[in-house]
């Protein structure tokens, strides 16, 4: 009893310091007014509405699968940034850096966290999509947000795919060889694709191994140095930026479409 009292007193003292107030503005959110302010005044929490439908908060409804996906995205961003301190995206160094990350770096589980996190994120995205489908939450007015979601699903898979090349081991190079060779089969734009050989000027083929869609993707005819660098940049900068932007749109739309769906 006494302990609780002194704990409360301590809490009170902390939230009344100038430092705390300068950061959070409100004290302990123990009145409705303060609860509202706590959410409104915080840029992170402000992703949420102030009040939510009770059904939408329940685990049994959302399974928190979307939230989990977002959290895993944050985990991946963080561990990925740490990996970037050690990893060099060149053919000479990439594989060795991977070995060092495993053997020489203290607490060498960042690579594990990053890799398993990526797998987990793919799984949670699927489960999230499945949940959204099964509750019919894509129906009006949420059609657009479903579409934002589909793009996020594709981006998640692309993130995984581009990351798969970076260890530069046998698994990596062959998965990407096979995967990128599909681009070679794009109708018209890939040199082995349907009708590509018919695009010719004065008998010279215009779509060749040196000018087709796959070449543009890899920056070369083979999965080599250019491809590694390109995938690195796509993986670490390009796709995450787009995904982060779209996630902001996604969350914003969840709010604007009337919060988590529920029966009318």
């Amino acid at each position: 009893m006494n302990l609780e009292k002194s704990w409360r007193r301590l809490q009170q003292q902390v939230v009344e310091t100038q430092v705390w107030k300068s950061i959070f503005r409100v004290g302990i959110p123990n009145t409705n007014r303060k609860r509202v302010l706590a959410v409104l005044g915080n840029v992170v929490l402000h992703l949420h509405p102030v009040k939510t439908r009770k059904s939408g908060v329940k685990m049994r409804y959302t399974w928190c699968a979307g939230g989990m996906t977002f959290f895993l995205f944050l985990v991946l961003t963080f561990t990925g940034l740490l990996l970037m301190f050690y990893y060099r995206p060149t053919i000479e160094y990439a594989y060795g850096d991977m070995l060092d990350l495993r053997e020489q770096v203290p607490f060498g589980i960042m690579r594990e966290m990053h890799r398993w996190g990526a797998h987990a994120m793919v799984i949670t995205v699927w489960i999230h999509m499945f949940r959204v489908f099964m509750t019919g939450s894509y129906k009006p007015p949420r059609e657009f947000n479903w579409n934002v979601g589909v793009v996020l699903l594709v981006l998640t898979l692309l993130l995984s795919f581009t990351g798969y090349l970076l260890p530069w081991d046998q698994l990596a190079i062959w998965a990407i060889t096979v995967g990128s060779n599909m681009a070679r089969a794009t109708p018209l734009a890939g040199y082995e694709g349907p009708f590509a050989a018919q695009i010719a000027f004065n008998g010279v083929n215009l779509v060749t191994a040196g000018s087709d869609a796959r070449f543009g993707l890899l920056g070369g005819r083979i999965v080599g140095a250019n491809a590694l660098l390109r995938f690195y940049v796509l993986h670490c900068v390009f796709i995450p930026l787009i995904a982060a932007f779209l996630m902001a749109v996604h969350f914003w739309r969840v709010r604007k479409d009337g919060g988590i769906s529920g029966p009318l």
Binding site: P29, T52, R53, S55, K58
Partner: peptide, 20 residues
């Protein structure tokens, strides 16, 4: 079932924040 809850609204803080 969801209907029973969907008419009620709860505050994001603490109900949702803690679940998260």
């Amino acid at each position: 079932l969801e209907k029973e809850d969907s008419d009620k609204k709860v505050f994001t803080w603490p109900d949702l924040v803690y679940v998260e």
